[in-house]
Design a protein around this nucleic acid. Structure first.
Length: 724
DNA sequence: ATGGACAATGTTTTT
DNA sequence: CATTGTCCAT
């Protein structure tokens, strides 16, 4: 197969670039994924590099999987031995192999965001600190930021008294993690960097092994990642990175787009290749994107161009509130699908915050339209899933104190806070983990610790210890799914969560879904299952084949593309988010985020904002986003005017209700029935979808051929019934 | 020890 | 408003 078929000059240049450091600056839609996969294929196929000597890092597991498949297709065989994955997953794997050089053993578990907060809370409690003054979330943020900058507690730059407190918490936090034989997300990178830094033998081993290193989304690497890349590339210097500083959207997570500049400085001999031609969007969409991003300072201006033609203008729409906005989205999709202009899967709806998905989901649900929601948190964040995963984690690693804290009280088994405190204290005295002590207590009188407990607490503890011990003996012999089944049975979990009701049933369904997932790990094993569960990313849950609109955050949209994109809530304070207002750097990132969203669209872009936003229950007036004024008038369709004309017939306007002439002859019954045809003075013929009585007037939902579904007030709209 | 009722409190983005 | 924590009765 000709690897260079259908590629432009720059792409070919990148793929066949000489060895040594290469920096590919790739605009959105410029085929960077193609360049990466072809480069890997080129190295293996043309230069005879063994996959074992290759490392490719992507941003999501999904991207890795796709890359593996595409490379295999290109070279016509499997790529065994290739190191391919996210930074976190790749580090997790290597650290497990090198555990003897680390303060954990190879059975370590990975603490998720919740676990991390729980550890901070525990430490704050143990140190008798005020959790109002030192909010666990904030403290954890500081610790995480420090780790991303490769600061251990002793390196932490202290400026204020608060910093001193943070350092003390950081120290104990780290102790608690290690005592639990656990790492958090940041540790995976941190320990990897430390391992390579402090251990020349190991460093050399991996630096020699990875003859070629390829990195996707390089603009979103943080200091820890950058540093470990430098160590890994220190022998062969064949590091091929692809990125776009304009798409850097993870600053708050320690990512630093300046790593792109740093790369040029640290590898002055690097070849720099620019990919500017866009194969995704219409020129109009690219022009809109550029008009937005051009306002950022500190960037190399890029000229995005396409051969796809001008395309249609983007559409800006103002809606009364978020409910109406959701309805507008659904109506637009329904209309286009019904008229065969588009397939449901062509659409994506993007928003700034996860909370915004709620009303959208409701609208889709009530319109009976299936949709895809991107967000791992949706599934793995559920209580029942976390419960069962915690059990499995504890069985895998008995020292996992956070996991133990969770499972020891779910379901309740007569072990409360006090008993747990006793257990913890005794464990500390005996210098073992609480979990290990439980295993010992399983032996009852045989255990030297048994007598330390009052009989009321000793019994439940030993009973639970026996369960743990039993599951543990199965750990190395049975597949994960069977261990899980035994646990579910032994704790009668179904009975615990299914206390009648619809919700309990859903929960059990989720558990069954987890069981299905676990059953795929028959041969791969519990360790991999737990690792994958800990490191799933939101995008990983996206089912590309399902033919339905996709709902996702702007962040989750990175790297994806859709024919038709809605960006909702384009209000000032949302996009850009108000939390970024005072920080110029954060404001630039808001702009990049918007830019990322815009450039996901291939053909159509719909921006919408609302007049009234619900913020903590009460409504607030919403201003359109300041970004609108950056978009040249000839690129946008002025749906604004459109709105001005129709605003008289808009419903749900509290202030209008008062001034609207109360219809004397109250229509107590609806005049308009679904299925009727009517004529509207402005919008022409329409089909009645529904009608309801509200505030002494009839509100009619009509579907018009040209403008889609509209709700009008019967007494104001001058409707004429054409056909009953 | 447990579970329910109320109060407080906080809302960006996620590997 | 929706989640999370705290207090109180059993």
């Amino acid at each position: 197969m000709d690897l260079l078929k259908d590629l432009n000059t720059q792409q070919k240049q990148a793929i066949t670039a000489d060895l040594g450091p290469v920096l590919v600056l790739a605009g959105p839609g410029s085929g960077k994924t193609r360049v990466l996969t072809h480069r890997v294929a080129h190295l293996i196929d043309q230069l005879g590099v063994r996959p074992y000597h290759l490392m490719a890092v992507t941003f999501t597991n999904k991207a890795s999987k796709e890359m593996g498949e595409r490379v295999a297709r290109l070279i016509g065989r499997q790529t065994h031995g290739l190191t391919l994955g996210t930074f976190h997953a790749t580090c997790a794997r290597i650290l497990r192999m090198e555990a003897e050089h680390l303060p954990v053993n190879s059975n370590y578990v990975i603490f998720d965001a919740d676990d991390q907060i729980k550890v901070v809370k525990q430490v704050i409690k143990d140190q008798n600190l005020d959790d109002k003054r030192y909010r666990p979330q904030d403290i954890h943020g500081s610790i995480s930021a420090a780790k991303n900058e490769l600061y251990l507690p002793e390196d932490f730059p202290i400026g204020t008294y608060r910093d001193e407190v943070v350092v003390r918490i950081y120290e104990d936090y780290q102790k608690m993690l290690l005592a639990s034989n656990a790492m958090d997300f940041d540790d995976l990178l941190l320990w990897m960097a430390i391992l390579l830094k402090d251990n020349p033998v190991i460093r050399e081993k991996y630096a020699r092994r990875f003859e070629h290193i390829l990195v996707d989304e390089f603009q979103d690497t943080n200091m820890a990642q950058y540093t470990l890349l430098k160590y890994l590339a220190s022998y062969h210097h064949n590091i091929f990175v692809v990125g776009d500083a304009d798409q850097s959207i993870y600053r708050w997570r320690g990512a630093d787009y300046r790593n792109v500049m740093r790369f040029r400085r640290d590898f002055p001999q690097a070849q720099v290749i620019l990919l500017e031609q866009n194969y995704r969007s219409t020129q109009t969409i690219l022009d809109v994107a550029m008009s937005v991003i051009d306002h950022n300072t500190n960037r190399t201006p890029k000229r995005l161009f396409t051969e796809r033609g001008t395309g249609q203008r983007i559409l800006i729409k103002e809606l009364y509130d978020e409910r109406e906005q959701a309805q507008y989205i659904v109506d637009t999709i329904v209309k286009q699908v019904a008229s065969k202009q588009a397939n449901p899967g062509d659409f994506a709806v993007m928003y700034r915050t996860n909370a915004q998905s709620r009303l959208l989901e409701e609208a889709f649900l009530s319109a009976n339209i299936p949709y895809k929601l991107v967000g791992a948190q949706r599934f793995y964040g559920r209580r029942e899933i976390k419960d069962i995963v915690a059990y499995l984690r504890l069985v895998f690693n008995i020292d996992d104190e956070i996991g133990l804290m969770r499972v020891i009280k779910t379901p309740p088994r007569g072990i409360g806070i006090k008993t747990y405190a006793q257990l913890r204290a005794q464990a500390q005295k005996a210098n073992i983990s609480p979990g290990a002590l439980l295993l010992d207590l399983a032996k009852e009188e045989e255990s030297e610790h048994f007598s330390q407990f009052t009989s009321r607490s000793a019994k439940p503890l030993s009973r639970f210890g026996r369960l743990l011990a039993k599951w543990q003996t199965e750990r190395d012999t049975l597949p994960p799914v069977e261990i899980m089944e035994h646990i579910l049975e032994d704790i009668d979990y179904r009975n615990y969560i299914e206390d009648g009701g619809e919700e309990g049933k859903d929960r059990w369904d989720n558990v069954m879904e987890l069981r299905r997932l676990a059953s795929e790990y028959q041969t791969i094993g519990l360790q991999q299952f737990l690792e994958d569960v800990a490191l799933v990313s939101d995008q990983d849950t996206l089912d590309k084949d399902a033919e339905a609109p996709t709902l996702l955050t702007l962040h989750a949209a990175k790297g994806l593309e859709f024919a038709k994109v809605f960006i909702v809530g384009v209000n000032d304070g949302v996009i850009p988010h108000k939390r970024s207002f005072e920080d110029p750097e954060a404001m630039e990132e808001e702009r990049r985020l918007f830019y990322v969203g815009i450039t996901r669209a291939k053909d159509c872009l719909y921006l919408s904002h609302v007049l009234n936003r619900y913020v903590y229950g009460n409504t607030e007036y919403g201003e359109p986003s300041r970004y609108y004024s950056d978009i040249p008038a000839d690129l946008k369709e002025d749906a604004q005017q459109n709105y001005q004309q129709q605003r008289k017939s808009q419903i749900f306007r509290p202030w209008q209700k008062k001034s609207a002439p109360a219809a004397k002859s109250k229509p107590i019954e609806a005049q308009y029935k679904p299925g009727m045809s009517v004529e509207h003075p402005k919008w022409g013929n329409g089909l009645i979808l529904g009608s309801k009585i509200q505030d002494d007037d009839e509100i009619v939902n009509i579907f018009f051929k040209d403008v889609g579904a509209k709700k009008v007030i019967a007494s104001l709209a001058n409707l004429e019934i054409i056909r009953k």
